[in-house]
Design a binder for these strands. Structure first.
Lengths: 168, 168
DNA sequence: TATGAAATCAATAGTAC
DNA sequence: GTACTATTGATTTCATA
Protein backbone atom coordinates (compact mmCIF):
# COMPACT_ATOMS: atom_id res chain seq x y z
CA UNK A 1 0.00 0.00 0.00
CA UNK A 2 1.61 3.13 -1.19
CA UNK A 3 -1.25 5.56 -0.69
CA UNK A 4 -3.05 4.39 2.44
CA UNK A 5 -6.51 5.88 2.81
CA UNK A 6 -5.44 9.47 2.16
CA UNK A 7 -8.15 11.25 0.21
CA UNK A 8 -5.89 13.90 -1.24
CA UNK A 9 -8.20 16.14 -3.22
CA UNK A 10 -8.16 19.38 -5.16
CA UNK A 11 -8.58 21.48 -2.02
CA UNK A 12 -5.61 19.82 -0.36
CA UNK A 13 -3.60 20.52 -3.48
CA UNK A 14 -4.50 24.19 -3.34
CA UNK A 15 -3.66 24.39 0.35
CA UNK A 16 -0.27 22.81 -0.25
CA UNK A 17 0.39 25.17 -3.15
CA UNK A 18 -0.53 28.13 -0.95
CA UNK A 19 1.76 26.96 1.84
CA UNK A 20 4.66 26.32 -0.51
CA UNK A 21 4.28 29.87 -1.77
CA UNK A 22 3.88 31.32 1.71
CA UNK A 23 4.62 29.01 4.62
CA UNK A 24 3.36 31.55 7.14
CA UNK A 25 0.01 32.22 5.48
CA UNK A 26 -2.82 32.04 8.00
CA UNK A 27 -5.50 29.39 7.75
CA UNK A 28 -8.13 32.08 7.36
CA UNK A 29 -6.22 33.66 4.47
CA UNK A 30 -5.85 30.33 2.69
CA UNK A 31 -9.45 29.52 3.44
CA UNK A 32 -10.70 32.69 1.82
CA UNK A 33 -8.73 32.06 -1.33
CA UNK A 34 -10.11 28.55 -1.79
CA UNK A 35 -13.57 28.97 -0.27
CA UNK A 36 -13.17 27.18 3.04
CA UNK A 37 -13.31 28.16 6.69
CA UNK A 38 -10.10 28.59 8.67
CA UNK A 39 -10.99 25.61 10.85
CA UNK A 40 -11.41 23.34 7.85
CA UNK A 41 -8.09 24.46 6.42
CA UNK A 42 -6.35 23.84 9.73
CA UNK A 43 -7.75 20.34 9.99
CA UNK A 44 -6.57 19.53 6.48
CA UNK A 45 -3.13 20.90 7.18
CA UNK A 46 -2.96 18.92 10.43
CA UNK A 47 -3.95 15.78 8.56
CA UNK A 48 -1.37 16.36 5.85
CA UNK A 49 1.29 16.81 8.49
CA UNK A 50 0.18 13.59 10.16
CA UNK A 51 0.38 11.79 6.83
CA UNK A 52 3.79 13.30 6.12
CA UNK A 53 2.61 14.98 3.00
CA UNK A 54 3.73 18.24 4.52
CA UNK A 55 6.90 17.44 6.43
CA UNK A 56 7.61 20.86 7.89
CA UNK A 57 8.00 24.57 7.40
CA UNK A 58 11.15 26.48 6.68
CA UNK A 59 12.49 29.94 6.03
CA UNK A 60 13.98 30.51 2.60
CA UNK A 61 17.36 32.15 2.87
CA UNK A 62 19.66 33.66 0.28
CA UNK A 63 22.87 31.71 0.92
CA UNK A 64 25.12 34.41 -0.47
CA UNK A 65 23.78 36.76 2.20
CA UNK A 66 25.07 34.35 4.81
CA UNK A 67 28.45 33.96 3.20
CA UNK A 68 27.91 30.75 1.24
CA UNK A 69 29.37 31.99 -2.01
CA UNK A 70 30.47 28.74 -3.63
CA UNK A 71 28.38 25.86 -4.87
CA UNK A 72 29.10 22.72 -6.85
CA UNK A 73 27.71 19.38 -7.94
CA UNK A 74 30.11 16.52 -7.35
CA UNK A 75 29.96 13.12 -8.98
CA UNK A 76 31.27 10.42 -6.69
CA UNK A 77 32.78 7.16 -7.89
CA UNK A 78 33.13 4.34 -5.38
CA UNK A 79 35.14 1.14 -5.18
CA UNK A 80 33.33 -1.88 -6.63
CA UNK A 81 29.77 -2.22 -5.40
CA UNK A 82 29.11 0.93 -3.39
CA UNK A 83 27.03 0.24 -0.28
CA UNK A 84 24.40 3.01 -0.18
CA UNK A 85 24.08 2.56 3.59
CA UNK A 86 27.69 3.46 4.21
CA UNK A 87 27.56 6.22 1.63
CA UNK A 88 24.65 7.81 3.50
CA UNK A 89 26.68 7.77 6.71
CA UNK A 90 29.64 9.40 5.04
CA UNK A 91 27.49 12.11 3.52
CA UNK A 92 25.99 13.03 6.88
CA UNK A 93 29.47 13.61 8.26
CA UNK A 94 30.03 16.56 5.95
CA UNK A 95 27.63 19.39 6.71
CA UNK A 96 28.57 21.18 3.51
CA UNK A 97 26.72 18.49 1.57
CA UNK A 98 23.29 20.04 1.05
CA UNK A 99 21.89 17.11 -0.88
CA UNK A 100 23.10 13.70 -1.99
CA UNK A 101 21.58 10.95 -4.07
CA UNK A 102 22.44 7.77 -5.88
CA UNK A 103 22.04 8.14 -9.61
CA UNK A 104 22.11 6.22 -12.86
CA UNK A 105 25.10 6.66 -15.15
CA UNK A 106 28.78 6.22 -14.49
CA UNK A 107 28.86 7.82 -11.06
CA UNK A 108 27.55 6.15 -7.93
CA UNK A 109 26.30 9.33 -6.32
CA UNK A 110 25.75 12.99 -6.98
CA UNK A 111 26.42 15.51 -4.21
CA UNK A 112 25.26 19.09 -3.97
CA UNK A 113 27.96 20.91 -2.02
CA UNK A 114 27.87 24.42 -0.59
CA UNK A 115 30.95 26.18 0.70
CA UNK A 116 31.87 29.66 1.76
CA UNK A 117 34.48 30.07 -0.96
CA UNK A 118 36.66 28.09 -3.33
CA UNK A 119 39.24 27.48 -0.65
CA UNK A 120 36.62 26.02 1.64
CA UNK A 121 35.25 23.95 -1.22
CA UNK A 122 38.66 22.48 -1.89
CA UNK A 123 38.96 21.54 1.76
CA UNK A 124 35.57 19.80 1.67
CA UNK A 125 36.53 17.94 -1.48
CA UNK A 126 39.74 16.71 0.10
CA UNK A 127 37.81 15.59 3.14
CA UNK A 128 35.36 13.66 0.97
CA UNK A 129 38.07 12.06 -1.12
CA UNK A 130 39.76 10.82 2.03
CA UNK A 131 36.74 8.67 2.89
CA UNK A 132 37.46 4.93 2.69
CA UNK A 133 35.85 3.62 -0.47
CA UNK A 134 35.64 6.79 -2.52
CA UNK A 135 37.71 6.34 -5.63
CA UNK A 136 37.32 9.61 -7.49
CA UNK A 137 35.20 12.73 -7.75
CA UNK A 138 34.31 15.06 -10.60
CA UNK A 139 33.14 18.55 -9.71
CA UNK A 140 30.90 20.92 -11.60
CA UNK A 141 31.00 24.41 -10.14
CA UNK A 142 27.75 26.32 -10.27
CA UNK A 143 28.22 29.60 -12.12
CA UNK A 144 24.75 31.14 -11.97
CA UNK A 145 21.20 30.13 -11.22
CA UNK A 146 18.74 30.34 -14.10
CA UNK A 147 15.82 30.20 -11.62
CA UNK A 148 17.11 32.53 -8.92
CA UNK A 149 14.21 32.22 -6.49
CA UNK A 150 13.82 28.46 -6.61
CA UNK A 151 14.00 26.74 -3.22
CA UNK A 152 17.17 24.96 -4.27
CA UNK A 153 18.96 28.17 -4.94
CA UNK A 154 18.15 28.62 -1.27
CA UNK A 155 19.51 27.78 2.11
CA UNK A 156 22.21 25.36 3.15
CA UNK A 157 21.55 22.77 5.84
CA UNK A 158 20.61 24.40 9.15
CA UNK A 159 23.23 22.37 10.97
CA UNK A 160 26.20 24.58 10.26
CA UNK A 161 25.86 28.10 9.06
CA UNK A 162 28.51 28.83 11.70
CA UNK A 163 31.53 28.90 9.49
CA UNK A 164 29.80 30.98 6.86
CA UNK A 165 28.59 33.58 9.33
CA UNK A 166 32.01 33.94 10.85
CA UNK A 167 33.75 34.30 7.55
CA UNK A 168 32.28 37.64 6.59
CA UNK B 1 28.82 47.49 -2.01
CA UNK B 2 27.89 43.90 -1.45
CA UNK B 3 26.88 44.04 2.19
CA UNK B 4 25.38 47.47 2.72
CA UNK B 5 25.08 48.41 6.39
CA UNK B 6 23.71 45.07 7.52
CA UNK B 7 25.07 44.22 10.95
CA UNK B 8 24.45 40.51 10.69
CA UNK B 9 25.46 39.17 14.07
CA UNK B 10 25.41 35.97 16.06
CA UNK B 11 21.81 36.50 17.20
CA UNK B 12 20.62 36.96 13.63
CA UNK B 13 22.40 33.76 12.72
CA UNK B 14 20.61 31.87 15.48
CA UNK B 15 17.26 33.33 14.44
CA UNK B 16 17.83 32.29 10.85
CA UNK B 17 18.87 28.81 11.95
CA UNK B 18 15.73 28.51 14.07
CA UNK B 19 13.52 29.64 11.20
CA UNK B 20 15.15 27.28 8.73
CA UNK B 21 14.46 24.44 11.14
CA UNK B 22 10.90 25.60 11.85
CA UNK B 23 9.52 28.34 9.65
CA UNK B 24 6.42 28.70 11.79
CA UNK B 25 8.19 29.05 15.12
CA UNK B 26 6.79 31.95 17.14
CA UNK B 27 8.92 34.98 17.90
CA UNK B 28 8.50 34.34 21.62
CA UNK B 29 9.70 30.76 21.23
CA UNK B 30 12.76 31.80 19.27
CA UNK B 31 13.37 34.63 21.70
CA UNK B 32 13.37 32.32 24.70
CA UNK B 33 15.89 29.99 23.08
CA UNK B 34 18.34 32.76 22.33
CA UNK B 35 17.65 35.12 25.22
CA UNK B 36 15.73 37.90 23.51
CA UNK B 37 12.18 39.25 23.75
CA UNK B 38 9.61 38.38 21.11
CA UNK B 39 9.55 42.01 20.04
CA UNK B 40 13.27 42.08 19.43
CA UNK B 41 13.13 38.85 17.46
CA UNK B 42 10.32 40.14 15.28
CA UNK B 43 12.21 43.33 14.51
CA UNK B 44 15.29 41.39 13.49
CA UNK B 45 13.25 39.08 11.28
CA UNK B 46 11.55 42.06 9.67
CA UNK B 47 14.93 43.63 9.01
CA UNK B 48 16.32 40.44 7.50
CA UNK B 49 13.30 40.19 5.23
CA UNK B 50 13.82 43.82 4.20
CA UNK B 51 17.46 43.10 3.44
CA UNK B 52 16.54 39.93 1.52
CA UNK B 53 18.54 37.74 3.80
CA UNK B 54 15.33 35.84 4.48
CA UNK B 55 13.46 35.77 1.17
CA UNK B 56 10.35 33.94 2.29
CA UNK B 57 8.75 31.04 4.09
CA UNK B 58 7.66 27.77 2.61
CA UNK B 59 6.11 24.44 3.47
CA UNK B 60 8.31 21.41 2.95
CA UNK B 61 6.48 18.74 1.02
CA UNK B 62 7.30 15.13 0.23
CA UNK B 63 7.01 15.12 -3.57
CA UNK B 64 6.26 11.41 -3.77
CA UNK B 65 3.17 12.01 -1.66
CA UNK B 66 1.94 14.38 -4.35
CA UNK B 67 2.66 12.00 -7.17
CA UNK B 68 6.06 13.30 -8.29
CA UNK B 69 7.76 9.94 -8.42
CA UNK B 70 10.51 10.61 -10.93
CA UNK B 71 13.50 12.89 -10.65
CA UNK B 72 16.60 13.46 -12.74
CA UNK B 73 19.52 15.77 -13.31
CA UNK B 74 19.97 16.72 -16.94
CA UNK B 75 23.10 18.12 -18.50
CA UNK B 76 22.31 20.46 -21.35
CA UNK B 77 24.63 21.15 -24.27
CA UNK B 78 23.92 24.20 -26.41
CA UNK B 79 24.95 25.36 -29.86
CA UNK B 80 28.09 27.49 -29.90
CA UNK B 81 28.05 30.26 -27.29
CA UNK B 82 24.94 29.62 -25.23
CA UNK B 83 23.24 32.86 -24.24
CA UNK B 84 22.34 32.46 -20.57
CA UNK B 85 19.53 35.00 -20.99
CA UNK B 86 17.72 32.89 -23.53
CA UNK B 87 18.46 29.73 -21.60
CA UNK B 88 16.78 31.21 -18.54
CA UNK B 89 13.67 31.97 -20.60
CA UNK B 90 13.54 28.45 -21.96
CA UNK B 91 13.88 26.97 -18.51
CA UNK B 92 10.98 29.01 -17.16
CA UNK B 93 8.74 27.57 -19.87
CA UNK B 94 9.00 24.08 -18.43
CA UNK B 95 7.46 23.90 -14.97
CA UNK B 96 8.96 20.47 -14.37
CA UNK B 97 12.38 22.12 -14.11
CA UNK B 98 12.79 22.60 -10.37
CA UNK B 99 16.24 24.17 -10.62
CA UNK B 100 18.63 25.16 -13.37
CA UNK B 101 22.11 26.59 -13.39
CA UNK B 102 25.04 27.21 -15.64
CA UNK B 103 28.03 25.11 -14.66
CA UNK B 104 31.68 24.54 -15.41
CA UNK B 105 32.64 21.44 -17.36
CA UNK B 106 31.48 20.18 -20.71
CA UNK B 107 27.81 20.99 -20.30
CA UNK B 108 26.38 24.49 -20.52
CA UNK B 109 23.72 23.96 -17.91
CA UNK B 110 22.49 21.48 -15.36
CA UNK B 111 18.76 21.02 -14.83
CA UNK B 112 16.96 19.41 -11.93
CA UNK B 113 13.81 17.90 -13.38
CA UNK B 114 10.83 16.44 -11.53
CA UNK B 115 8.15 14.42 -13.25
CA UNK B 116 5.27 12.23 -12.20
CA UNK B 117 6.70 9.12 -13.80
CA UNK B 118 9.18 7.99 -16.43
CA UNK B 119 6.69 8.53 -19.22
CA UNK B 120 6.15 12.12 -18.12
CA UNK B 121 9.90 12.60 -17.81
CA UNK B 122 10.42 11.42 -21.36
CA UNK B 123 7.83 13.90 -22.55
CA UNK B 124 9.58 16.74 -20.69
CA UNK B 125 12.92 15.72 -22.15
CA UNK B 126 11.51 15.73 -25.67
CA UNK B 127 10.03 19.14 -25.05
CA UNK B 128 13.37 20.49 -23.85
CA UNK B 129 15.30 18.97 -26.73
CA UNK B 130 12.95 20.64 -29.17
CA UNK B 131 14.03 24.08 -27.95
CA UNK B 132 15.97 26.03 -30.61
CA UNK B 133 19.61 25.98 -29.64
CA UNK B 134 19.74 22.88 -27.47
CA UNK B 135 22.04 20.38 -29.07
CA UNK B 136 21.99 17.42 -26.72
CA UNK B 137 21.09 16.35 -23.19
CA UNK B 138 22.44 13.71 -20.84
CA UNK B 139 20.18 12.53 -18.05
CA UNK B 140 21.03 11.08 -14.67
CA UNK B 141 17.99 9.56 -13.01
CA UNK B 142 17.86 9.93 -9.24
CA UNK B 143 17.58 6.51 -7.60
CA UNK B 144 17.45 7.39 -3.90
CA UNK B 145 18.16 10.31 -1.62
CA UNK B 146 20.98 9.86 0.87
CA UNK B 147 19.70 12.81 2.91
CA UNK B 148 15.97 12.12 2.81
CA UNK B 149 14.80 15.17 4.74
CA UNK B 150 16.94 17.76 3.00
CA UNK B 151 15.00 20.67 1.52
CA UNK B 152 16.06 19.62 -1.96
CA UNK B 153 14.56 16.21 -1.60
CA UNK B 154 11.48 18.38 -1.11
CA UNK B 155 8.83 20.11 -3.09
CA UNK B 156 8.59 20.86 -6.77
CA UNK B 157 7.84 24.38 -7.97
CA UNK B 158 4.51 25.66 -6.67
CA UNK B 159 3.47 26.66 -10.17
CA UNK B 160 2.24 23.30 -11.34
CA UNK B 161 1.55 20.46 -9.02
CA UNK B 162 -1.61 20.08 -11.15
CA UNK B 163 -0.53 17.26 -13.33
CA UNK B 164 0.93 15.33 -10.43
CA UNK B 165 -2.18 15.66 -8.33
CA UNK B 166 -4.40 14.56 -11.15
CA UNK B 167 -2.28 11.57 -11.96
CA UNK B 168 -2.99 9.66 -8.78
C1' DT C 1 20.30 52.18 17.36
C1' DA C 2 19.25 48.95 19.90
C1' DT C 3 16.06 46.84 23.75
C1' DG C 4 11.76 45.27 26.72
C1' DA C 5 6.85 45.77 28.61
C1' DA C 6 2.30 46.47 27.94
C1' DA C 7 -1.89 47.07 25.08
C1' DT C 8 -4.31 45.77 21.06
C1' DC C 9 -5.51 43.09 17.33
C1' DA C 10 -5.26 38.63 14.66
C1' DA C 11 -4.57 33.65 14.53
C1' DT C 12 -4.78 29.22 16.44
C1' DA C 13 -6.63 25.28 18.99
C1' DG C 14 -10.47 23.52 21.11
C1' DT C 15 -15.23 22.55 21.55
C1' DA C 16 -19.81 21.81 20.00
C1' DC C 17 -22.87 21.37 16.37
C1' DG D 1 -18.04 20.84 6.76
C1' DT D 2 -19.36 25.53 10.03
C1' DA D 3 -19.79 28.52 14.34
C1' DC D 4 -18.23 29.93 18.66
C1' DT D 5 -14.71 30.62 22.29
C1' DA D 6 -10.46 30.56 25.19
C1' DT D 7 -5.86 30.87 24.52
C1' DT D 8 -1.85 32.09 22.20
C1' DG D 9 0.83 34.77 18.97
C1' DA D 10 1.63 39.01 16.17
C1' DT D 11 1.92 43.77 16.06
C1' DT D 12 1.95 48.49 17.59
C1' DT D 13 2.97 51.93 20.95
C1' DC D 14 5.66 53.69 24.41
C1' DA D 15 9.47 54.04 27.56
C1' DT D 16 14.48 53.17 28.31
C1' DA D 17 19.58 52.46 27.85
Amino acid sequence: MTTKAAPFDELDRKIVAALIENGRASFAEIGTSIGLSATAVKRRVDRMRENNIITGFSATVRPAALGWLTEAYVEVYCDSAAPPRRLAEVVRNHPEIAAAMTVTGGADALLHVRATDVEHFEEVLERIRTEPFIRKTISYMVLSHLIPDSPEAGAPRPSTPDRAANQR
